[in-house]
Simulated scan of single mutants.
Amino acid sequence: MAGSRKDVRDRLLRAALDLFSERGYDRTTAADIADRADVTERTYFRHFSDKREALFDGEGALQHALAGAVAEVPAGLSPSETLLRAFLAMIPALEHEGDLKKRRQAVIAAAPELRERELSKEAHLISGVAEALETRGVRAPVAVLAAVSGIAVLSRARLEWLAGASDDYATLLRTGFADLRAALASEPASPGR
C-alpha cells in the first residue's frame, strides 16, 4: 500500500501500538509492524531505527515546543512560574490523541526497557527546558533545578491524567507546582547555608 511519507509513518505508529497492545512489546518485531502497516521491513527502518522508537516518536518536537512555550512566557516571573505558564500553554498538545497516549503508556509501563527509554526522554526534556530558562537569563544551576523539578511535575500530571484523574490537566499542573512549593518550603535549610 503506497502513501505519502507522513501517511506511511502514521500507519507504522498505529500498527506498532496495536501490536504492542495485543502481543506485548517483547513479542512484536519490526517485521510484524511493517507487515501490519502493509509496508516492507526496510521501509520501517527508513522511519525508525528500532521498534522502541515507534513509541517515542515526536520527542524532538515536544522538546522544541516546550522550549518555545518557555520563551513565550512574559519576562519577570520566577523559573517555576515560567514553567507552569509554559506547561499550561502546552495543554492542547499534551491532550491531543489522549486515547492513543493512554494505550502507549500502558505498553511502556509493562516493559522495563521502555520505562528506561522514557527516563532518557525525560532527561532530554530537562536539558531543553533548562537551556530555554538559561536563555531567559536564569543562572545555569537554578535553571537545571527548575527544569528537573518542573519536568517531574509535568510527568506526574501526565501520568495522573492518563490514568483518568478526575481533575483536568491544568488543575493537575497547578496542584503539582503547589505541592513542589510546599515540599521546598517544608524542608530545613541545607547545613552551612
Rank of each mutant, 00 (worst) to 15 (best):
I91T: 15
P92E: 10
A93T: 13
L94N: 01
E95Y: 01
E95T: 04
E97K: 13
G98A: 13
D99P: 02
D99H: 05
L100Q: 08
K101Q: 15
K102A: 14
R103E: 10
R103I: 00
R104C: 12
Q105M: 09
A106C: 01
A106H: 08
V107G: 13
V107A: 07
V107K: 01
V107N: 07
A109T: 04
A109Q: 13
A110E: 15
A111K: 15
A111Y: 08
P112D: 06
P112V: 03
P112K: 11
P112H: 07
E113I: 02
L114D: 12
L114R: 13
R115G: 11
E116D: 10
E116Q: 14
L119E: 15
L119D: 15
L119T: 09
S120E: 15
S120M: 02
K121Y: 12
K121C: 05
K121F: 09
E122F: 13
E122A: 13
A123M: 12
A123N: 06
A123R: 11
A123W: 08
H124A: 15
H124S: 13
L125G: 10
L125W: 03
I126M: 12
G128R: 03
V129Y: 06
V129I: 08
A130I: 10
E131S: 12
E131V: 08
E131L: 07
A132D: 14
A132F: 10
A132I: 04
E134Q: 13
E134S: 12
T135F: 06
T135G: 03
R139N: 07
A140Y: 08
A140C: 01
A140V: 05
A140S: 14
A140N: 11
A140I: 00
P141S: 00
P141L: 03
P141M: 04
V142G: 02
V142M: 06
V142N: 00
A143Q: 09
V144P: 05
V144H: 03
L145G: 11
A146K: 11
A147D: 02
V148A: 14
V148Q: 13
S149R: 15
G150H: 06
G150D: 09
G150Q: 06
I151R: 06
I151V: 15
A152C: 10
L154A: 00
S155V: 02
S155Q: 11
S155A: 11
R156E: 14
R156G: 14
A157K: 03
A157Q: 01
R158H: 01
R158T: 15
E160C: 01
E160I: 00
E160M: 11
E160Q: 14
W161P: 00
W161A: 14
W161I: 02
W161L: 09
L162T: 09
A163K: 10
A163P: 01
G164D: 09
G164P: 08
A165H: 07
S166I: 04
D167V: 01
D167W: 00
D167Q: 06
D168L: 10
D168F: 02
Y169R: 11
Y169S: 11
A170M: 05
A170R: 05
A170Q: 04
A170I: 05
T171E: 12
T171S: 13
T171V: 08
L172F: 08
L173W: 13
L173Y: 07
R174D: 02
R174N: 04
T175R: 15
G176I: 08
F177A: 06
D179M: 14
D179Q: 12
D179W: 12
L180F: 11
R181W: 06
R181D: 14
A182V: 04
A182I: 05
A182E: 15
A183N: 05
